[in-house]
Nucleic acid binder design. Structure first.
Length: 476
RNA sequence: UCCUCAGUAGCUCAGUUGGUUAGAGCGGGUGACUGUUAAUCACUAGGUCGUAGGUUCGAGUCCUACCUGAGGAGCCA
């Protein structure tokens, strides 16, 4: 007899058919009712046990998180909490879970506690929901790009250029750490290393994605990204997943249009494919916030926030306009901002939050940043002062997308690299893209975990990746 | 890395201006009950109060350092 998944059984018309289910016990109530979950859905299947027909020794092994195989009949439920249930005829305990030491109880646990039990937390409703939504978003991303003629490009994890300028990198080396080969000058001789040069884990696939775009037209990457920053915040990881589309013949406006449409469509996908999980997360947050003062609650419940994104356009302003708006703002005039607001300085978290959460109350796309605070590869605007960069800011999590039109003019790019002291020799291939058939092109990077945070309402990024990597932590 | 807050039973937490034997709910064990929805009832075990020093007649409570966690900042996606 073949097993049926619980998601499918819950949608089946119950006609006393024989079924086989397998899953993990969530609760065992009244020595009669097993709430069984197999991960296929948030919802549990109720298995009804006639305890007089089973050995006491078997019933005692039906404990929270024990793995069971149950054969029985699918019938309409007599109780009011569920439509169908299975009358058990044969129960096998596939794996015991000793309740004296099993740490996850059928009650509310703190997310901090569950973070320390990363190998078991996916068995909870909350993390089950988060990871099903995570899958849906990943799938939606591939589908979105595939449907629009993009090619999925796998860019390298190990990279030889340290010129990307996106932060501290993790070194990749097979040299003996205690006694590495030295040059005559006494420095570590990287020529002796595995790749014959210094290599690191990638901090971005963008430069390689540009190669793809300038050949295949439209590509995207979706892979792990590594930053060795000593960041300890609710929105940074040392290992995270990033999506980086790159398009030939797109300018900054095409880029913005794509990014906005893309974000809206993947959120729409999650809403249509994960209604149960999102409703659960919505209710959970609402419950959680009941005890908080108004000021600490979300401005809008989770599902309303997501719907709002679908129904409303993102605001679009230039960096210069953003500075002007901030300088006219109440918190600025009252001296509430901790950091100065003046043209040429980067926007701080407090400024971004004001724009997104107070001023516009929608996602905001900011363009035209001063060239001095942005990367060397961004296209220099005609004013010679700003670059064609765009950041998309979301309520609660800040920057979700960072992108730009790329500098396609060889001489301008070289001048910018010289200005910012980016060595040309590591990026000779990148420069040749501008030598042979250069053309306007653009792209952006989306932090995958950040968009999952936004969609699930999880406030700590460590709770939307299965095995988070952050300073002093690689336990699982 | 910086700032702020926290660390008491397996989990979530209470513990008064420093004062005798540190409590509750859940979870565990034993028993009862049985169409439940985080089932219910009775009994019961369980704590070097994060660690190390210090102040004091006396420290869970005050002080110092360290460790761990959380929130915020910087860096960014």
């Amino acid at each position: 007899m073949t097993r049926t998944e619980i998601k499918s059984l819950l949608q089946t018309d119950p006609q006393e058919q024989d079924v086989l289910v397998k899953g993990w016990v969530r609760t065992f109530r009244a020595n009669r009712f097993i709430a069984l979950n197999d991960g296929s859905t948030l919802n549990n299947l109720q298995v009804v046990v006639d305890f007089e027909q089973y050995d006491e020794s078997l019933l005692r092994r039906i404990t929270t998180s024990a793995a069971l195989s149950v054969r029985g009949k699918l019938v309409p439920s007599q109780g009011s909490g569920q439509a169908v249930e299975v009358l058990a005829e044969e129960i096998e305990v596939l794996g015991d879970a000793d309740p004296a030491v099993y740490p996850i109880q059928p009650k509310k646990h703190s997310l901090e506690f569950l973070r320390e039990k990363a190998h078991l937390r996916m068995r909870t409703n909350t993390f089950g929901a988060v990871f099903r939504v995570r899958h849906a978003l990943a799938f939606a991303i591939h589908q979105y790009f595939h449907d629009r003629g993009f090619f999925y490009l796998h860019t390298p994890i190990i990279t030889g250029s340290d010129a990307e300028g996106a932060g501290e990198m993790f070194r990749v080396s097979t040299l003996p750490m205690g006694d590495p080969p030295r040059t005559e000058a006494g420095e570590i001789d990287w020529k002796e290393d595995f790749f014959g040069k210094e290599t690191n884990l990638t901090v971005s696939g963008q430069l390689e994605a540009e190669v793809g775009a300038m050949s295949l037209g439209k590509v995207y990457t979706f892979g792990p990204t590594f930053r060795a920053e000593n960041s300890n915040t609710t929105r940074h990881l040392a290992e995270f997943w990033m999506i980086e589309p790159e398009m030939a013949f797109y300018d900054i406006h095409d880029n913005m249009d794509l990014a906005e449409d893309f974000l809206r469509e993947i959120i729409r996908f999650a809403l249509t494919h994960c209604p149960d999980d999102l409703q659960y997360l919505h209710d959970r947050i609402a419950q959680e916030e009941k005890n908080l003062p108004q000021a600490q609650r979300r401005p809008m419940p989770l599902l309303d926030t997501l719907q709002f994104i679908l129904d409303n356009g993102f605001a679009r302003i230039t960096y210069t306009e953003a500075i002007e708006r901030l300088q006219r703002s109440k918190p600025y005039k009252k001296g509430k901002f901790q950091y100065p607001v003046e043209w040429g300085r980067d926007l701080q978290s407090e400024h971004e939050r004001y724009l997104v959460e107070k001023d516009f109350q929608t996602p905001v796309i900011v363009t035209g940043y001063p060239k001095d605070i942005k990367a060397f590869y961004m296209k220099l605007n005609d004013d010679n002062k700003t670059v064609a960069a765009m950041d998309i800011l979301f309520p609660g999590i800040g920057e979700v997308v960072g992108g730009s039109q790329r500098e396609e003019r060889l001489d301008v790019l070289q001048a910018r690299m010289a200005e910012m002291e980016v060595p040309e020799h590591d990026l000779w291939w990148y420069l040749e893209l501008r030598k042979f058939g250069t053309a306007p092109h653009a792209g952006f990077g989306l932090g995958f975990e950040r968009i999952i945070q936004f969609v699930t309402g999880m406030t700590n990024i460590r709770d939307v990746i299965a095995f988070p990597r952050f300073p002093k932590s690689a336990e699982f």
